[in-house]
């Protein structure tokens, strides 16, 4: 077996030499996850705002439902989406299975409850006076909402970062509905899984390094935001 140091060394040289296949995989990962976050965030934050701001029957049930959904394993989301998108499934005519769109959809489903749950607690922590101040100074309900969101922006950023961290590191759903097709639906995590099964460790290590660095960056920004949050309170 290739020694760990040899493999790691080759991994680093793959990274710095700008290996085309490797960087294609990395850009697919980021492309898919950023799209998913981009599409989910507005809807999720609106939902979170509605849950935090309006009193309506079933609100508490919904909040605890979203907290439950946080724990749904990615493979279950993958399986469900697979069955829905498969040619024998209800949306089979769209021919979306094993496409990037399917991966984006899966990651949207995965990120939605995180964004709602964390967004909700951030928005809930917002002072009632924010909304009242905005409203009384003439803000429309929409503008008042943006003002409230702006006041708890660090909490909302934290939600987005946490959600992004989860979906870019997720493997089960992407593998199932993406199919791990090279230059198309192979992202960092599915590539690592594949490279290991092929016995090619260098690329796996290189991609693992990318994920680790990303996790570091995300965690660092999260803790910075938490710090800001604490200062704000």
């Amino acid at each position: 077996m290739e020694s760990l140091t040899d493999a790691s060394f080759r991994a680093l040289s793959l990274l710095v030499s700008g290996d085309a296949e490797l960087w294609a995989i990395i850009s697919i990962s980021f492309g898919v996850s950023l799209q998913a976050i981009l599409y989910t965030t507005p809807v999720a934050l609106l939902t979170a705002y509605a849950l935090a701001h309006f009193e309506f029957p079933g609100r508490r049930t919904l909040v605890s439902l979203f907290h439950t959904l946080l724990a749904v394993p990615a493979v279950v989301v993958g399986l469900t989406l697979y069955l829905i998108l498969s040619r024998s499934g209800p949306f089979g005519d769209l021919k979306l299975l094993f496409t990037q769109t399917a991966m984006v959809l899966g990651q949207m489903v995965l990120s939605f409850p995180i964004l709602v749950a964390m967004g909700h607690s951030a928005l809930q922590s917002a002072d009632q006076r924010v909304w009242e101040t905005a409203h009384t100074l003439g803000a429309t309900p929409l503008r008042a909402m943006f003002t409230v969101m702006h006041e708890v922006r660090y909490g909302l950023f934290a939600a987005v970062i946490a959600a992004f961290g989860r979906i870019i590191a997720e493997v089960g759903c992407s593998m199932m509905v993406g199919g791990n097709i090279l230059n198309y639906t192979r992202n960092i995590t599915t590539a690592i899984a594949l490279e290991t099964s092929k016995g090619q460790f260098a690329q796996g290590i290189a991609l693992g390094i990318v994920l680790l660095v990303l996790a570091l960056v995300l965690n660092y920004s999260l803790s910075t935001l938490r710090h800001r949050l604490a200062m704000q309170a």
Partner: peptide, 11 residues
């Protein structure tokens, strides 16, 4: 326009 006892200052 309503003013709170302890007015909220936007950040």
């Amino acid at each position: 326009v309503y003013l709170h006892q302890d007015p909220y200052m936007l950040d």
